[in-house]
């Protein structure tokens, strides 16, 4: 995988609000490593401004995710049947 830059350069032990803002969305997406995620979580515990920022993006992201359309059931059925042809289920196993 190519990286144009590291998604989150390692944060200092006490990151500033600006540093947290830079990685906040990756944090909300679960894309930060455990160490950086822990530092952001610790910062959010005591920084009201960043808490508001995080809550705002959580609402924006949740609203965008609600736009996800389900695949039409008939399409899902056809694709599942195709998979049945390519890799038949074991006898006795039930199709979800």
């Amino acid at each position: 995988m190519r990286w144009s830059r590291r998604p989150a350069t390692p944060l200092p032990a006490e990151p500033s609000c600006a540093q947290v803002a830079e990685v906040l969305q990756a944090y909300l997406d679960g894309e930060l490593g455990p160490q950086d995620a822990g530092l952001v979580a610790a910062h959010l515990e005591h920084c009201e401004r960043c808490q508001i920022e995080a809550a705002t993006y959580e609402r924006v992201i949740a609203a965008i995710r609600r736009q996800r359309p389900p695949a039409p059931p008939e399409v899902t059925d056809r694709l599942t049947r195709l998979l049945d042809e390519l890799a038949p289920p074991d006898e006795g196993s039930s199709r979800p």
Partner: peptide, 15 residues
């Protein structure tokens, strides 16, 4: 077919 960092920066700007 772009680097992960590009996804991250574009996503954040988009949001």
């Amino acid at each position: 077919a772009v680097p992960v960092g590009t996804v991250m920066s574009r996503l954040h700007r988009a949001r």
